[in-house]
Design a protein around this nucleic acid. Structure first.
Lengths: 233, 233
DNA sequence: ATTGACATTATGTACATACATAATAAAAAT
DNA sequence: ATTTTTATTATGTATGTACATAATGTCAAT
């Protein structure tokens, strides 16, 4: 019996992981309870609990009260990505960042935008269109709507200096939302903005964020051809 | 003084969140220490710790020993998605799932594949190409390489019954890897497989997974036009 | 002024204990 | 046989205590 005398939850977690990757516990199988494991590893139950809790969070195991803990079937994999502000993305490639605001205007949004953002009938929203450049080349074309009911302060922001995006992430600290990615053929507007052919395949992302039940902003981003979105598994 | 007499870490977390969204604590600001907060909320420090720990994990706050805790500047947003097995995706749309294996063969992979998977020079890998259908329509075209050094058992699997993907997720429990998404124009092979025009814009994803330092599989998926990939923020 | 030793401090963790809660199994009532 | 009630059990959480660790500031030695 080798005694690795470290009872950090990370160590316990590692040993549990080991049992799974080594096939000691196979997917679907019930693993020993917390008390048993604690005794086995010679640590407190709370430590085992912490180790298991984080494994459940990342989807390696499934836990249910009374039913116990079993190795996940992994019907789904969780992928995650850090989506930095565009400036950082560009500068990370050691390229010069620059952006142009093409339009900044209060508009009555399209019905699709209005319903998505739960805007009141007839109310206007701030509509901003801009191009982000990496060096001389267009990098991303941005088409954004902002709910000025939720964020009235945004009206005062000087867009010559900071992009709305950066202003928002620095001043509106906590939002939730959805992020949808699809492939499209560039339409005329987008093609002209990104300086690509009309039928070019590009990634479009659509992000809608909320504070509580109030929409903040709806952003459509059109990425220049060749853009890769990277995730971790 | 209203006393919400619940000291669950979720409640404490909610109240801390509230302070951030309400602008009581602005981005970059140092917030009170754990002991202070515990006294304020009338709970144990460990409970505050749990609440703050999870907030740090999701990137709402930044913590450093001795330096204290401050509201994050949110330079980047974390997005996550559940990527289910294709069968589940199709069946979730209440459509019939079916797949065809076009090719299943041991090949010496291209150099790009070989280096990405860290395969030994000249060694073969299992190469599988298949089409996944949603109802009658092609849904995803799959081009996969499997490292048979890592997963020798896969050679025995009957591909008529279960797709390799499903077999892998059910039998190889714990892998890490990367997942890259981009927009491409369908080439001849893909276009024929998905029954779309040659220049059609489609999403291509490339997933490479590892067990420890041994590659498991490299999968290129080509999604039918219109496919949307959804993430949570 | 710079370096190094040391104290200070806020977060991080481990543990024992106690109780809460959800899901299940067993027992009782219909 | 079916439903309802009750007990059981494994996970989930809260707390006090103790100590670990990393980062910072302080003060003395050079």
């Amino acid at each position: 019996m080798t005694k690795a005398r470290s009872h950090t939850w990370q160590d316990i977690q590692q040993r549990i992981r080991q049992n799974i990757t080594d096939g000691v516990w196979v997917p679907g199988q019930l693993i020993p309870g917390e008390v048993t494991l604690a005794a086995q590893f010679g640590c407190a139950r709370t430590t085992v609990n912490r180790a298991l809790r984080e494994l459940a969070q990342t989807g390696v195991i499934d836990r249910k009260r009374k039913a116990g803990t079993r190795v996940a079937m992994m019907k789904a994999r969780r992928v995650t990505a850090e989506i930095p502000v565009i400036r950082s993305q560009v500068e990370a490639q050691s390229q010069q960042y620059r952006f142009d605001v093409l339009k900044r205007k209060f508009d009555v949004p399209l019905v699709s935008v209005k319903t998505a953002m739960k805007l009141r009938k007839g109310s206007k929203a701030l509509h901003i269109q801009s191009i982000h450049y990496a060096g001389a080349a267009p990098y991303i074309y941005e088409d954004r709507w902002i709910n000025i009911q939720t964020i009235p302060q945004v009206v005062e922001v000087d867009l010559g200096q900071t992009s709305v995006n950066e202003w928002l992430v620095e001043n509106i600290p906590f939002t939730r939302g959805e992020f949808v990615v699809e492939a499209i053929e560039a339409n005329k507007t987008v093609a002209r903005a990104l300086k690509v052919a009309d039928c070019a395949s590009i990634i479009k992302s659509r992000r809608l964020t909320w504070i509580e039940s109030r929409s903040v902003t709806l952003v459509n981003l059109y990425y220049a051809p060749g853009y890769q979105m990277k995730f971790e598994i």
